[in-house]
Design a binder for these strands. Structure first.
Length: 434
DNA sequence: TCTGGGGTCCTAGGACCC
DNA sequence: TCTGGGGTCCTAGGACCC
């Protein structure tokens, strides 16, 4: 038995938590570079702000409704996300952190409990301890738990907790017939269109499809979805995230970039971040990819984009080696005269340091020195903040490539200088509901 | 003026092997 | 007249997720 716990309007809820003026107002959180809407408060959804809409296209709507827009504050969201997981961990021994705002809880063996009541306890505790609203979906497979969570969110009658096993077969049929198939986890826009063409429009239609035929016409992935919808578990809880096979770091630029110096600086920063993640999972990379491109949304301007991968002589996690390879690629792909809008890098062919094969040509002493240097750099950056120590190439004065973040809220919970202060008379009231 | 940044898995087809 | 059978590896592209 699984429970899927999902935070409601997570980014928007995090922002409103520390700024009460934002409550009950249409609030949106923007993507990096203040580009698109990536999260909306209940009120923003109600007035019809579409998900993914470019912010600059919403100006009229903003004036009309007084929408508040904020830049993404991932330091805040990540910290609060960790706290949510900590609270949830008390409710189960086995938990999978699925995304920044969702976790699967293993409730196998909890059959003696009233799971709806248990779900309500989870909601109440996260709300009381963290101030964040969540919904809970309970079912015997992950796909059904996702569906249950959708129901808990959309139907007020469930008060935020839906246990599909509480429904009779007939009630479940009726419910599934009322939900569009596109709401199912794993059914995106394309598959939804194709399903519609063969007459599969509701969740119920998909549940009643023949898994073998679905496999033949679509894929083994969708077959698993059908089986999961029928209550046959095909997806297991993944408590420990497997190491990443690729690590990417890329950003759009706040302003168009013309000079290779600025691209170098951006690439150097990206390599630094990606290499840090690589070392955090105790791995090395065997190849570095560099991507640069002009603005795809301005087809009237000259377009250029290149993505080139450079294999390394041997795998490494040393920022200096990775950066050397990346900058060499950049020299090769750069063409002057273009207005670049985005640059990124990717580390691939990732292998654990532990299984490393001895090198034919390298020296063990050099390798040990490299590992020690990187460990020292990471420790200093952890203690004194990201970017305290970084490659020279990343430390230039150019700023055109940096992303726009004009509406950033404080790092309320992760920076001593930005912790909110309280003044005046304070009256605390403590609820004993939980 | 202005449009994000990460990831995963699966499949088909080509090249190659014996 | 008539031309096998069984595999692996790699890449590109498509689909999905948050």
């Amino acid at each position: 038995m699984f429970a899927l716990v999902d935070c409601n309007n997570f980014y928007a809820s995090c922002e409103a938590l520390f700024d009460p003026r934002l409550r009950d107002r249409p609030l949106v959180v923007l993507s990096n570079n203040d580009g698109c809407v990536v999260a909306r408060s209940k009120e923003a959804k109600a007035i019809g702000v579409p998900m993914g809409a470019p912010w600059f296209k919403l100006r009229e709507m903003t004036q009309q409704h007084g929408i508040v827009a904020l830049s993404s504050n991932y330091a805040l969201y990540a910290d609060l996300s960790n706290r949510v997981v900590e609270v949830l961990s008390a409710f189960t021994p086995n938990l999978e952190v699925y995304s920044i705002d969702e976790s699967f809880l293993d409730l196998t063996g909890f059959a003696g409990l009233d799971l709806v009541h248990y779900g309500q306890q989870i909601r109440a505790r996260v709300l009381q301890w963290l101030g964040l609203p969540v919904c809970v979906g309970i079912a015997p497979t992950k796909t059904l738990a996702k569906l249950a969570n959708h129901v808990a969110k959309k139907r007020s009658g469930y008060a935020g907790v839906c246990d599909l096993t509480r429904l009779s077969g007939k009630e479940l049929d009726t419910l599934c017939a009322e939900i569009e198939v596109g709401e199912v986890w794993g059914v995106g826009r394309r598959i939804e269109e194709r399903l519609s063409r063969i007459g599969v429009r509701s969740v119920q239609d998909l549940r009643q499809s023949d898994p073998d035929k679905i496999r033949a016409q679509f894929s083994v992935v969708l077959e698993r979805t059908v089986r999961e919808l029928r209550g046959e578990p095909c997806l297991a809880l993944e408590e420990v995230a497997p190491p990443k096979q690729q690590i990417m770091a890329s950003r759009s630029f706040g302003n168009p970039v013309f000079e290779i110096e600025e691209l170098r600086e951006a690439i150097a920063n990206h390599v630094g971040r990606a290499a840090e993640k690589l070392r955090a999972q105790e791995c090395e990379a065997g190849a570095v990819t560099v991507m640069i491109r002009t603005n795809v949304f301005k087809p009237e301007e000259p377009q250029y984009q290149r993505t080139v991968t450079s294999p390394l002589a041997e795998p490494t996690a040393d920022t200096r080696t990775l950066l050397g390879a990346a900058l060499a690629v950049l020299e090769g792909v750069f063409r002057p005269g273009y207005a670049y809008k985005k640059a990124g890098i990717m580390l691939s062919e990732i292998t654990p340091v532990a299984g490393r094969q001895a090198s034919l040509f390298g020296s063990d002493v050099e390798m040990a020195r490299s590992a020690a240097l990187m460990a020292a750099m990471d420790a200093i950056n952890r203690k004194w903040g990201r970017g305290t120590l970084r490659p020279l190439a990343a430390a230039g004065e150019a700023s055109g490539w940096k992303m726009r973040r004009e509406r950033l809220s404080p790092a309320y919970t992760t920076n001593w200088d930005e912790i909110p202060g309280v003044s005046g008379e304070v009256r605390l009231s403590i609820s004993t509901e939980d």
